[in-house]
Nucleic acid binder design. Structure first.
Lengths: 140, 140
DNA sequence: TGTAATTATGATATTATATATTATTATACA
DNA sequence: TGTATAATAATATATAATATCATAATTACA
């Protein structure tokens, strides 16, 4: 399947844990799952894959460029399938995460880096606020 | 001293640990210290203040608005005296941190939030790159 | 297709970071 | 200065992540 080809492409052996974890991330491409979330999903699917393996595999997938690790402000990293670069907007009430890309922002970051004589390599930009979803408003 | 007045101003009792921790943060206002760093500095000054107290006090100072907690990308929070709002540029080679404020960036963040119907409350923006310091270049 | 060489995994222990508990101590204020 | 109240120290515990190592799975190739 597709996940297996991706693994081969980046030179990782195709193993059951890697395959399954990539699949889960793919299926939940709109989510931002923690290692524990992923482990729970595996357990639910009756996969006996240890949490240590989940961490190990996620690190490998990140190194290989297949997965993006996010560290928002809550002591726990989350992971998502690597898509086009983007930043995040997070609702502080309901936890909803919106992904966005803004070319003006990207340009501005370059400009700021230049100003301070920095060779920009990556950045993290996360906006925290309140979303205006009806569901969110009703529950808060 | 000044630290004590700050504590009083925000309605916190003046205690030895709070006073000392605020002082350390003030003295190192250009640094970004972890709870452990602060604890080590206290031990060096022959202060017998427990690590748990350091965490507790830092949280209180943050709540009170005297201290800013930063969570960069390394599983460990760092703290600094709260100054004017600013973002960070971090050198991935030498760890040097530059604080900056860019009004265009602030405006752009508001604009992006509006676009997605979010009431912006705060943000984190960290740029990672290579600084062009001679010291850094020589050691990498 | 079967097998050896190599790499990955599961289970567990350990480390690192942070928080909770509780008896004792310090602070603020009458 | 004495007392009510809140804070601290010294644990223990929780949470997140990594290290170890014997066993199992994968791949290359005969």
């Amino acid at each position: 399947m597709d996940s297996d080809n991706k693994l081969k492409d980046v030179g990782l052996k195709v193993t059951h844990p890697r395959s399954k974890i990539l699949e889960i991330l793919h299926t939940n491409s709109k989510s931002h799952l923690s290692a524990d979330d992923i482990h729970n999903l595996l357990v639910k699917s009756n996969e006996s894959i240890g949490l240590a393996t989940v961490y190990r595999v996620l690190t490998q997938l990140e190194m290989a460029g297949l997965v993006q690790k996010n560290q928002f402000q809550d002591n726990q990293s989350s992971y998502e399938i690597k898509k086009q670069h983007h930043d995040h907007l997070i609702c502080i009430k309901c936890g909803k995460i919106i992904e966005f890309l803004d070319s003006d922002l990207e340009k501005l970051q370059e400009k700021i880096s230049d100003k301070y004589d920095f060779k920009l390599q990556s950045h993290v930009m996360t906006l925290f606020g309140e979303c205006q979803n009806r569901d969110c408003k009703e529950n808060n």
